[in-house]
């Protein structure tokens, strides 16, 4: 009976996730264009290694991982303030979640205009006496801009998860800390963070999955990989090779590299997922 309960879900996931993955692994060993269908061994993978754009794409995944702690701590800090009842906290809690309900493609399109060189963001900078910044046209900062917009678009989700975690913090511990004369940072460090460890892990996992699998929409609209290929991510590379360049086999090879990469990163995190799904 339990098998029957899980069977439909397993069937869907296997048929539409796992089987395509295996088919893709197979395509990645065949050729494109004139070599369509012919076995070419690891030629596609060699092409990938030689392609500076793909290398940049992988490097940018590394950048995402570096940005992960920021994406987790920003909502964490904000949630702490909300928990401590900053004036207007009810309103903020609602407003901050608001970008989460918008489609990434729409957020990207809006920020395209807001961050354009003669857009409102730069107008504000100039009014404050600063130099305008080419947010999306300067290869050294464009990726950071897109990551920042991604964090803007998703921090509300992490925020409410933190808020729920706070709701379970044992009030007597906080009272005890106050009696002991602990200041705010001490309280956060010694009481709140240990109490929230489960929540923090959960936010880490969901934020990581969001960053590694959910940035395509923004990227595609905001930079399309430019300038000079500086903002490619593997998903975009796969998309471009498959569509514009009409090289589905090479795209499949890139897919496999991305998947293995995700699996390695995922292994580290699976431990945490497992703990989250297990009862504490």
């Amino acid at each position: 009976m339990p098998v029957l309960l899980v069977a439909p879900a397993v069937l869907v996931v296997v048929a539409l996730r796992i089987v395509p993955l295996v088919m893709g692994a197979n395509y990645s060993l065949t050729g494109d264009g004139a070599d369509n269908g012919a076995f070419v061994g690891l030629a596609n993978y060699r092409t990938l290694l030689d392609d500076p754009v793909f290398r940049t794409a992988l490097r940018n995944v590394g950048l995402l991982l570096v940005a992960l702690p920021v994406a987790v701590s920003v909502p964490g800090i904000l949630a702490t303030f909300l928990f401590l009842r900053v004036p207007g906290h009810r309103l903020y809690r609602s407003v901050y979640f608001f970008p989460v309900v918008l489609s990434p493609v729409i957020i990207g399109a809006i920020f395209n205009v807001v961050l354009s060189f003669d857009g409102p963001a730069n107008q504000l900078l100039v009014r404050l006496g600063m130099q305008p910044v080419d947010w999306l046209g300067d290869g050294s900062i464009a990726m950071l801009t897109v990551i920042a917009v991604h964090i803007w678009a998703t921090f509300g989700m992490a925020l409410v998860i933190f808020m729920a975690g706070f709701a379970t913090v044992d009030q007597s511990l906080l009272d005890a800390a106050r009696v002991d004369g602990a200041n705010l940072p001490q309280t956060v460090w010694h009481v709140i963070i240990p109490e929230l460890s489960q929540t923090i892990q959960f936010v880490f996992v969901t934020t990581m999955i969001g960053m590694l699998t959910g940035m395509f929409g923004l990227l595609y609209i905001m930079t399309a990989g430019g300038p000079g290929g500086a903002t490619y991510l593997p998903e975009l590379y796969i998309w471009v090779q498959q569509g514009q360049m009409n090289r589905p086999a090479l795209a499949s090879a890139a897919s496999m590299v991305l998947f293995v990469f995700m699996l390695v990163v995922g292994f580290a995190q699976l431990r945490i997922i497992k703990r989250a799904t297990k009862e504490v």
């Binding site: 796992i18 197979n26 269908g37 589905p248 086999a249 795209a251």
Partner: peptide, 12 residues
């Protein structure tokens, strides 16, 4: 996932 490679196929 990694080892079962379907019998044949072409990307296009």
């Amino acid at each position: 996932l990694l080892m079962t490679v379907a019998a044949c196929g072409a990307a296009s």
